[in-house]
């Protein structure tokens, strides 16, 4: 069982990201479950969503407290939310930022994880180039797929095309291609 926790701010699309993870996993022939942690949602407020991916049927409906992967859509959350809570010792961290792990002051924590498991990708900038909007969920799903190797690129592309058909899907496919060029995974 692979468990993902996505941290973002209201409006950034943590729920859509979790949905894309689960749909891509479904296209890979796996079982998946994606769900949000609803609070009193407001634009900009910290929000979380979860995804479980498994080779076996998923029965549990408890929230994810021990994720294998933490994805951070907005690096300013590092200051306010205990984003690494419960993360597995072999876990992965993927942060959307233009800054380095050192500049984000998470290097110390990341050094407790295996080499290369903690990565930063400037997904907002990539999205701005292709969409003209800082929507980061498709880029981060692609980043996760490349970093962990637990989703195929084909299924990620298919899930994105299903969610955003037509022109928007093609623009997002460019984001995926750009993220796959990053030196991660």
């Amino acid at each position: 069982m692979f468990q993902i926790r996505i941290h973002g701010r209201g409006g950034q699309g943590v729920v859509t990201a979790a949905e894309l993870f689960s749909v891509a996993a479904f296209f890979d022939g796996k079982y998946a479950q994606a769900f949000p942690s609803f609070g009193s949602e407001r634009m900009g407020a910290p929000v979380t969503a979860f995804c479980r991916i498994s080779n076996a049927k998923i029965r549990s409906h408890e929230p994810v407290s021990h994720p294998n992967v933490v994805i951070i859509q907005d690096s300013t959350l590092l200051l306010h939310v205990d984003v690494f809570s419960g993360l597995s010792q072999n876990g992965y961290v993927l942060i959307n930022s233009t800054r380095t792990l050192e500049a984000l002051q998470v290097e110390e924590f990341c050094s407790t994880l295996p080499e290369g498991h903690c990565r930063v990708i400037p997904v907002s900038e990539i999205a701005m180039q292709h969409l003209g909007q800082p929507f980061v969920n498709t880029g981060l799903v692609a980043g996760f797929a490349k970093l962990t190797g637990s989703l195929s690129k084909l299924s990620v592309e298919k899930a994105i095309q299903q969610k955003f058909p037509g022109h928007l899907g093609n623009l997002n496919a460019k984001i995926v291609a750009k993220v796959y060029e990053q030196n991660i995974g």
């Binding site: 998946a32 769900f35 609803f38």
Partner: peptide, 12 residues
């Protein structure tokens, strides 16, 4: 059906 836990969950 349980609100959020089921209504808002993506499952197979």
């Amino acid at each position: 059906m349980d609100g959020y836990i089921l209504t808002h969950a993506f499952e197979l």
